[in-house]
Every structure is written in C-alpha cells, then in structure tokens.
Design a protein around this nucleic acid. Structure first.
Lengths: 358, 358
DNA sequence: CTGAAAGCGCTTACAG
DNA sequence: CTGAAAGCGCTTACAG
C-alpha cells in the first residue's frame, strides 16, 4: 500500500512535511504543497485509518446500535438508520452498524476498543441496559428515544405526549365524542418501550379532559392478527367515530379492514396514525398522521453527537433533551363524525384542519 | 485508557508476554497466563482496535455497501442488511454500513484507507460502477446480486431465471393458459437491475415453450400507482387466470386490489409472488411466493467473504458464483383456473402443489 | 518459557 | 518554512 513515506519521497520532502502539506495544519510553501498534492494524487494515496486513529485518537466513525425485536415493525427502523448514516457521512463520519441482540455487550466492545468516536442508540427503552455503559464510556452518546433517566447523553425523540394530545384535540375540534386508540403490542411496553404509554397516557388524559369516550387497546405488530383485532375493536365499539393508531402494522392493515367493512375515511370513520411520511408513501396509507420524523431524529442525534466529538467546548455542555413537536400531516382522513354531520348540515368536513405538508 | 502495558505491569511480565498470554500464540506457563488474565479482567482491558489493525493489517470489520434508489422498495433491503450484519458478528466481525449515494467513491474510501478486511455489495447492477474498484482493491469482495461480469468476486443471488420458470411451470401444471407478469419498474432495469429481466425473460420463454399467453408489464414501486396499474392490467386482460409478481410493492397492493374487484385467490385468480417469507408475514400477504431468501444470501456472502479473509488458501481459490435455486412457498393462492375447474369437475384445486414451507 | 526491540503508518510537539 | 524524532498501542520475529 502507498504510505505517507512514499508521498514524501516522491515529493522530495520529509514525512512530516508531507503530512502537514496534506492536512494544512501549518504553513507550507506553495511549491512544496503542490508537489505533495501531485504525488498523493498520482500514487493514489489514502491515509491508513488505523494508523491515523492510533495517532490522533479519532476514528471518524460513529457507532449505530439498532435493536430489532420480533414483536416490532422492522421496516420503520430502516429510516432511522438511514437518517443516522446519511448525516454521519455528510459530516465526514462513517457508521459502524451493530445489530447484535446483546446491545450492552456490543456497546462495550466498540467503545472499549475505540472503534468509534461516539454512539447513537436506537430504540431506547425506559430502563435501557445499554445506558449505564454508554455513560461510563469515554465517547459521547446520543439517543433516539427517551429513557427513564436521560442524564449523561443527548436525547432526541418525538414528543409522544404532545402527539397524543394533538390527536385527541384534532378529533375534539371535529366534534368526535368516542375514540379508539390502538397502540403497539403490550410486549413493547413491558420491554420498556416508553413511547407507547407516553402517547397512550396523554390520549387518555386529554380524552378525559375533553369529555371524550376512549377505548384504548394494544394491537399486534403482525398481520393478519392486527387486522383481526381492528375488526374486533370496531365491532366492540360501534359508536366510536375516530380511530387513533400508534402502531404501524395496524395502519398498514387498516385499508383492507375498512374496505371489508364497507367503511370509508373520513365519511364513516376519522383516522389519525403516527408514522412517517415515507412509510405512508411506501404503503399508500391514505390516513392523516403525526409525522414520526425518523430521518430528522437520526439527523439531530448525529449532528449533536458530532458536535460533542469535534468541539472541545461542546464536550462539557449540559446535555440536551429535545422532544420534537408533533406535526400532523393532513391526508384528508378526518372529518366531522357521521352523527354530527347529519345533525349539523352546514358543518364543513374539517374546519380546523392543521394543514401540515400538502 | 488501559493498555497492554498496564496489564503487563500488573502481571509483572513484559508486554510481549502479556500479548502472547492473551492471544495464546505461544506457550506460556500456567501461572503467568493466569496472572495476565486476572489483570486483564480486573483492569477491564480491551485491545485498541486501531493499534491492532495497524500491527496486524486486519480490522475485523467488513464493509456493507447498500444502495437505496427512490424507485425501489426500501423495506426489502433491510433483511439483506441484517443477514450480513448478524452473520458477520457471529464470525467475529463488525459491519461498516455505507449508504452513500456514490457507492464507488465510498468503496474506494473504505478499502484504500484499510477500514475493512472485505466488502459485501448489495443491490448489484448489471454494469456496476463499484465492481472495477472492488476488483482492484486489496480486500476480497462478495456480491449479493449477479452482475454482467462476475469475475474477481464471489457472487450470490437468487436464481431468478429458474424462479421465472418455476412460476410458469407451476401455473402450467394447474392448466393456466394466460398469465400476467408484473415486474419492478422499468427504471430499475435501465439502471441495470438485471434480476428484473432475468426473471422476465425466463417467464417469457417458458410461457412460449408451454404455449401459455403472457402479458408482461413493469409496475411502479409505490402505492397507489402500483394498485392502479394492477387494476388496469386486470381490466386489459380479463382472460388471464394467473398473476406473477416480481415486485414487492405490487404484492403489498394486491390484497386491496383483489378485494376491490371482488376477486379471491385462488378461486378467481392464481397468484405467485417473489419475496421473502419475512416480508409475507410482516404484510400478511396470503400469496404463494418464490422465496427471495435475503437473510440466506447475506449470510452466504459474508461466510465466503470471511473465509477468503482468514484462510490464506481460500484467498486464491477460484471465485464462486452461486445462484440459490428458487423455493416456492405455498400459501394456497394457486389452483386450477376458473374455466378449467368448471370444465373438469373432478380436478383437484392444486394437484401438483410444490409444498414448500407450511 | 520469557524479554527487549522493531515495526505497522500516522501526527505533532520540538528544534532549527 | 522544513526536518528529525517521539509516540500512539499493538504484534511478532529475534534472541536467549
């Protein structure tokens, strides 16, 4: 392989001069700089990453710890991963992907061995076993997902509580009086998937505050189970006029369920989901939704992480906890409930539509 | 950080002895070995990856180059990625994920800098710009996807031609006489997505050989476009009794389309797709399909890659080109065509069902 | 069975 | 503006 020694020899300078000429870290005569640059280009020189890491204690690699659980909807995870990976690259970092089941062990391995300059944790649980290790690690960490104890790391997540309130308020403004909420599977909650109950609790409280009847249920993450459950819920609560979905699989299953029942949204049922626009487009989901913003969250996490890595001042700044406010993307699946519409003939279908992306 | 010097000092031996004791690469007295092991454990020693890579010229990292195109169905990619990543870890390797749009540039970067010991390319095109670079790289490479020129690398892919023939033959045995094939978008073909026409050509030829009428079309990778196209195809070819799908988005859209038309598979239409079982379960697709085996292909690619990396003999073995034979997973969506069934009353619905996974 | 030393390819004070 | 040298933390011939 071609080393900096080869460049130095070809340019007729010392290795240190070659190094400085390439890095620009001290002033070099234009002549020499040109000779070094030419030599590097001609010989196709790329610094050896291991050697550079050893000398500088910087790898320019970030770790990305993803966790895949059998009872979660895997495709949603990909968008977070791409948000992280693409942003990292934009900032000059590569991404070490870790999908190992034992995330704590993996985290220790990549941090102890100094394979990475920082770590992004995905799918963070309430009491995440990886967190104590991350706090103890010399590298900074950023989370996508809000844990019980967010200290010592930068945390980014959708504001699920605000999302729940926004869903209820939107339905309330349209005069809905009875709603169904389908959350992720209960297993997710038991494993510490706090976002499930953060949204659910907010929905429950806001519904109570608004005098709205609410039926909250956990839904499976697989088809056809989730479709069957949706049917059962609609059977059980015929007076419900609005459906809130904090469950990607349920959203994907709903078109068939509605079709089978001869229902249309928003004519017969108003629907709001919680998923990404990319997800909606991929599966053609015609339902308004609170944008889960996976790419944005991944990007925010990496930007903050890299700032902490590179900026010596940022290193000791207080950690941030940023909850992205919910944005309701209007796809026209909400309107006045059937009864209200018959009762008040002049009522427009969505007088308070929040707009969102077109 | 704790280095091997710290271990050596704590154990009262030289650094080389500590290193040998840890690696077991030469015989060490039981006493010393124990003292070193204790010291390493107590101090929480993990070798510095950069230093080790510099000394051994091995990183124990494989590069994973994924490519995401706007007109392809992204969720399918995740399973290949997990197949690679999980297998790599099982073999003691970490995975550097590259999602950069300019795959060739990225490949050069990670190979030239010696960040990886080998590379897996996903989504390989007929005339893939990354291939010349990979052949010129000092590290071995493995592909998932068959390029026009497979020399210099190990290649793994589904046997799409055999898959096409199997689809047609299955329909032929059931006495279907007119079929529709929906492929991936034409853009994928233009970009060099050879698997599209490998399957399509085989279907066309086999249909001709069997005297079966065939209507081949490219389908969009997005909803609702693909659903609309499916409707148009079924409208245009009312006599077609079988539908072959080499397009994940089309498969995901089909249940709604069938429902909207009041059709049931296999009663009114026999259907065979080409996607993974994981995909089928996630979206509850009730259609028999040729398994695309993403996890298996990712695993095979990594196993061969690691063998070439670690086994000095394997290094110079001839490169392999392995096409995984298609396996038809029977989900009960094929049967005799409606006309044949009325014609021959005693005909069982699927006399030659290939079984496959239950 | 063990140790002193060289070397992997960089970067960066130190010295001029 | 430039060079000789030290050092990052490992591994591994070389020598005993």
């Amino acid at each position: 392989m071609v080393t900096i020694g080869d460049i130095a020899r070809a340019a007729g300078v010392s290795r240190s001069t070659a190094s400085y000429a390439l890095s620009g870290k001290r002033s070099i005569s234009a002549q020499v700089r040109q000779r070094v640059a030419d030599a590097a280009r001609e010989l196709g020189y790329t610094p050896n990453a291991g050697a550079r890491a050893l000398a500088t204690a910087e790898t320019r690699v970030v770790g990305l710890l993803a966790q895949f659980h059998a009872d979660e909807f895997a495709p949603a995870m990909l968008q977070y991963m791409l948000g992280v990976s693409d942003t990292a690259r934009e900032l000059g970092y590569d991404t070490l992907l870790v999908t190992e089941a034992d995330g704590a062990r993996a985290l220790r391995r990549i941090t102890d061995s100094r394979m990475v300059d920082g770590v992004v944790l995905l799918n963070v649980a309430q009491d995440d076993a990886r967190l104590p290790l991350l706090r103890a690690a010399p590298q900074p960490g950023a989370l996508v997902g809000l844990p019980g104890d967010p200290s010592g790391v930068d945390v980014f997540d959708l504001d699920f509580a605000a999302a729940g309130r926004a869903m209820v308020d939107h339905m309330h403004r349209l005069r809905h009086r009875e709603l169904i909420l389908v959350s992720q599977p209960e297993h997710v909650v038991e494993r510490g998937g706090a976002y499930v109950w953060r949204l659910q609790d907010a929905v429950v409280q806001q519904a109570a505050a608004r005098g709205i009847g609410l039926h909250a249920a956990f839904g499976p993450s697989r088809q056809p189970d989730v479709g069957r459950d949706l049917h059962a819920l609609l059977d059980a609560h015929p007076a419900a006029t609005g459906l809130l979905l904090n469950n990607e699989a349920a959203a994907a299953a709903l078109p068939s369920v509605l079709h089978a029942r001869g229902l249309r949204a928003p004519r017969d049922l108003s629907v709001i989901g919680r998923y990404s626009d990319e997800f909606a487009r991929t599966f053609s989901l015609p339902f308004s939704s609170v944008e889960s913003a996976p790419d944005l969250l991944g990007e925010m996490a990496v930007r903050h992480l890299v700032r902490r890595i590179t900026d010596p001042l940022a290193r000791d700044e207080p950690h941030v906890l940023r909850l992205v406010p919910p944005e309701l993307v209007d796809r026209g699946s909400t309107g006045a409930p059937p009864t209200a519409r018959t009762a008040g003939p002049g009522t427009p279908p969505d007088p308070h539509g929040q707009g969102g992306r077109p």
